[in-house]
């Protein structure tokens, strides 16, 4: 399993698409740090500063895209190239193969996230000191969890899709859905059906992106009242359980798709 992980990691790091994404991520993180430093001096009264807000948006756009596209290619592309057959003829079980690939790709994703954030952290350290270092570390940790969740979802797509092109198509659509469509739809629903706060909250946190965002904001502000009545409702009714619930949503998004992917892959009657 570890050797599959290792090869997957090396392949991912050497891959052009992955490199492009990592570079983009690092550069944008750097740019955000610079831009937010240049505006209006260096006040940081809010635990949630403009830098974190900018990085949060960047993370929600780029990281799921990276995870979804690289993950959806994993099994489907091997199947299409015929290498999957070859791998499965080796002394390794299907679940081991899947988990090995997951491990390798998560390693690659974590590396790329860490490097991106590290560069931006060094810039921030130089120009703004260490205020918010704790929040920053929390943001990084949450980002990694989000990446793992999206990767897991991508693996499910990859196992189910017949062709690599279909898998990447579905993953792009999933990305669009999770990043934009579901939120926009929920916004429309909130306006049209006059949803109550608890309904909006329950529907919103189903989206791992929102759970991630709320998790980061809660970690920094110790409450979600920045997010209006719904956030205040969640903070006050759920109290200490709130961060656990948000983390739980992400953990479910990691575990459930991966479990389903393993089951489907293991029980698949064709390749």
């Amino acid at each position: 399993m570890l050797c599959v992980a290792r090869r997957e990691f090396v392949d991912a790091i050497a891959g052009k698409w992955f490199l492009l994404c990592s570079l983009t991520f690092a550069l944008l993180a750097l740019a955000i740090s610079f831009v937010s430093l240049s505006t209006a001096g260096s006040h940081a009264f809010a635990g949630f500063s403009k830098t974190t807000a900018g990085l949060l948006n960047l993370v929600m756009l780029v990281v799921p895209l990276m995870a979804l596209t690289s993950g959806s290619a994993s099994i489907a592309a091997e199947r299409e190239r015929g290498t999957l057959l070859y791998l499965l003829a080796q002394p390794i079980s299907r679940v081991e193969l899947l988990l090995g690939k997951y491990l390798g790709l998560s390693g690659a994703l974590i590396c790329s996230i860490c490097v991106g954030f590290a560069i931006s952290a060094i810039v921030l350290a130089w120009h703004a000191g260490s205020a918010g270092a704790g929040s920053y570390a929390l943001l990084v940790a949450n980002t990694i969890v989000l990446a793992l969740a999206m990767l897991s979802t991508a693996f499910l797509v990859s196992v189910l899709a017949r062709r690599a092109s279909i898998a990447s198509g579905i993953s792009i659509f999933l990305w669009l859905t999770l990043v934009f469509l579901s939120d926009l739809g929920l916004m429309a629903g909130t306006i049209l059906f006059k949803l109550r706060v608890q309904e909006v909250f329950a529907l919103a946190i189903v989206n791992p992106m929102q759970a991630f965002k709320m998790g980061v904001i809660h970690a920094m502000n110790d409450s979600l009242d920045v997010l209006g009545p719904v956030g205040a409702y969640a903070t006050h009714t759920l109290g200490n359980a709130l961060p656990l619930i948000l983390a739980g949503v992400l953990v479910i998004w990691i575990a459930l798709p991966l479990l389903l992917a393993s089951l489907c892959f293991a029980r698949r009657s064709t390749l």
């Binding site: 050497a14 190239r81 015929g82 290498t83 070859y86 003829a89 080796q90």
Partner: peptide, 25 residues
Amino acid sequence: YVPQELAFHDDARLGRAIAFFASLR
């Protein structure tokens, strides 16, 4: 096992390819 259609990771070098299968086995 020798499959009908030989499919390797084309980018890989021969040494890496056999090392990978060696570690698998």
